[in-house]
């Protein structure tokens, strides 16, 4: 990329991708903004003209707004905590030389290939069903009253399901990071008198810093907008209504596109606030 010529050639060749990406992003964003200032009820009169900030005010003042923000953040936080902690644990285990390592690794990755809708259905019907779910058998086996997971422990259930889906991703990223740890560093620490827990705390964990950051950032992006798992299991009931689910209800169930679009803009703002916080907390790990 040194000469004038090669630089302009590079720009020319990148242009299609950049234009496509921009269009992909800008068109929906513009439309969301456009509709958020309109009263637009597709089945009840269509476009009823401009209403200024009315949609925005209605969306925040609705009694569902703040609980939905809290629910969203709780799910994101809970899943991040579980996947990072268990992911580190699993990555360390999988990094040990053992018989059948290849197969075990594939099995660990497998949940990631199951579609969210399918895995949520499997969890709902096979594990968490209070009558014939596996967990209810387990509870009965120990003489306990089966739990009605999705209604009585709804948040726990959803966090469990989503964590199960994302654990492979976290494990995979952390495993590759652990594999890149120079074993001589661990040996040096061992000779320096560090016990196994201290070697983990002083050598392995700092080495994983960047990978953990990547896991947190990428998962947050996807977790802020989880939908299928909630739609399939609780349908937003029992305090599991996230912001994106609330928007879905406004647009499709109440057929109020304007109100939903205003919610969409709030979702963008929430995502940015979360992103700023995350970059403050963990972003420095990304500097080389």
């Amino acid at each position: 990329m040194a000469t004038q010529h090669s630089r302009s050639a590079a720009r020319l060749m990148m242009a299609p991708a950049v234009i496509l990406l921009l269009g992909w992003m800008l068109v929906p964003l513009t439309m969301t903004l456009y509709f958020s200032f309109k009263k637009y009820l597709p089945m009840r009169g269509g476009d009823l003209g401009w209403v200024g900030f009315e949609n925005y005010i209605r969306f925040v003042t609705s009694s569902s707004f703040w609980p939905s923000v809290v629910t969203t953040l709780t799910i994101v936080g809970g899943v991040l905590l579980i996947t990072v902690v268990l992911g580190i644990f699993l990555a360390i285990l999988l990094n040990q030389p053992m018989w059948g390592q290849g197969i075990v690794r594939i099995l660990v990755i497998a949940p990631f290939f199951v579609m969210p809708t399918v895995s949520a259905l499997v969890w709902k019907n096979m594990f968490m069903d209070p009558n014939y779910g596996l967990l209810s058998y387990l509870w009965e086996f120990f003489g306990a009253q089966p739990v009605e997971w999705l209604s009585k422990a709804s948040m726990t259930s959803i966090i469990t399901i989503v964590s199960w889906q994302w654990l492979p991703f976290a494990t995979l990223i952390l495993l590759t990071a652990i594999q890149s740890l120079d074993s001589e560093q661990l040996e040096a620490a061992e000779m320096d008198g560090a016990s196994a827990p201290k070697r983990f705390a002083y050598i392995t964990l700092p080495h994983l810093g960047r990978a953990i950051t990547v896991v947190i950032l990428i998962q947050t992006i996807f977790l802020l907008s989880i939908f299928a798992e909630i739609f399939v299991t609780t349908g937003g009931a029992f305090g599991t209504k996230t912001l994106s689910y609330l928007i879905f209800q406004r647009v499709l169930e109440s057929q109020n596109v304007g109100l939903g679009s205003a919610g969409g803009v709030y979702a963008i703002i929430l995502a940015n606030i979360v992103a700023i916080f995350l970059m403050r907390i963990v972003g420095k790990n990304l500097d080389a």
Binding site: Q185, E187, A188
Partner: peptide, 12 residues
């Protein structure tokens, strides 16, 4: 005490 070929310093 050992000095390794890769130095094995703690990078962080």
């Amino acid at each position: 005490a050992m000095v390794f070929q890769s130095y094995a310093l703690y990078p962080h």
